[in-house]
Design a protein around this nucleic acid. Structure first.
Lengths: 175, 175
DNA sequence: CTAAACTTTCACTAATTTCTGAAACTTCAA
DNA sequence: TTGAAGTTTCAGAAATTAGTGAAAGTTTAG
């Protein structure tokens, strides 16, 4: 299990800090719901820190409260299967990283450039904005597609390229 | 321009710190190559910090040296167009975030579980590993496809789903 | 070879982030 | 209503990360 805790360390690479990562690992890898106190004890961190960490994980929608009837304590479980969790991480990171960037870009694009140099710079900004927007739109569409189809698509891999060509040919042929 | 510098702040959301982000913004938005000294002056940061930042940006392959004949100083320019830069950021982040996670997972999956509880945990780890691996393989394949096709694919959006169905029908029909 | 014009390194300081633990708060059984 | 069992908050300590600037290192024209 100590080796397993080591995995939590990796969480620091995924948008939250080490402790929060360890808390998440503990919850995900436990089949049974686990209490805040148990988490604090297992990881040897303060009760306060644990509370903060759990709050953060809930704000990421990775962990949810699980009330056991008759028990006074609050227990926690993962908010879904691995696929769901991965999706949530992606969504939240998009919200924290891409969305603010997009909104800043839009702001910057509002005021018109005074100098020639500024004109050039704005063109670049616009390019970045458009790229970012296309990508987010695409990812949203893919997500809406549901896991099953996405899996097919992924299995297909670069083969998608082939399918595209094929489709084009048909279109031309039919005209 | 000061408003434009503000954009660099956003860099902190993208894997490097504020200053490095500002340096990158400055380089990308300047059409002309720019010297380390100029960067330090414009951003009011120390020469040492500038040097470190440039080194980091070069390690991310976002910025490259541009030697002007007859000049003693070293100048810097963006390592490519926006698309290239975005790709590089993605690649480098994958290298820094996903690859170490994958290698840790592989290590953890090597030793066989002693208890029943450990067995359960390992199953989860394996699931995570497989998901991560599929996704990276897919992204590599997409990348190898080149920007042009990728753009088509993105434009198609959720429509890919339709194409997939279509293809399936054909296969069945041919059998 | 030397000195001017640069760049890089690194020990130290500054700023930021994370963690603790005691105090305040909440809930509920008796 | 009380107090036991629990949770949350928050001021400040500890740890980490970023930034400075002086000294050491490089490169090249002369």
């Amino acid at each position: 299990m100590s080796a397993v805790m080591h995995f939590g360390e990796m969480g620091s690479r995924w948008g939250f800090n080490r402790t929060v990562g360890q808390i998440l690992a503990l919850i995900v890898l436990n089949d049974k719901p686990i209490s805040a106190q148990e988490i604090a004890d297992t990881l040897s961190i303060s009760r306060g820190n644990t509370s903060m960490g759990l709050k953060e994980l809930q704000s990421w929608r990775l962990v949810k409260l699980h009330i056991i009837p008759g028990e006074r304590k609050e227990f926690f479980v993962a908010a879904g299967d691995i696929w769901t969790l991965a999706n949530r991480v992606l969504e939240e990171r998009k919200k924290r990283e891409i969305d603010p960037t997009l909104s800043l870009l839009r702001d910057l694009l509002l005021d018109s450039p005074s100098t020639d140099k500024d004109k050039l710079a704005q063109d670049k900004l616009c390019e970045i904005h458009d790229l970012l927007e296309s990508v987010t739109r695409w990812s949203e569409e893919l997500q809406r597609m549901g896991p099953d189809k996405l899996l097919t698509l992924m299995k297909l891999g670069a083969g998608v390229g082939k399918v595209l060509e094929f489709k084009d040919k048909l279109k031309i042929g039919n005209k």
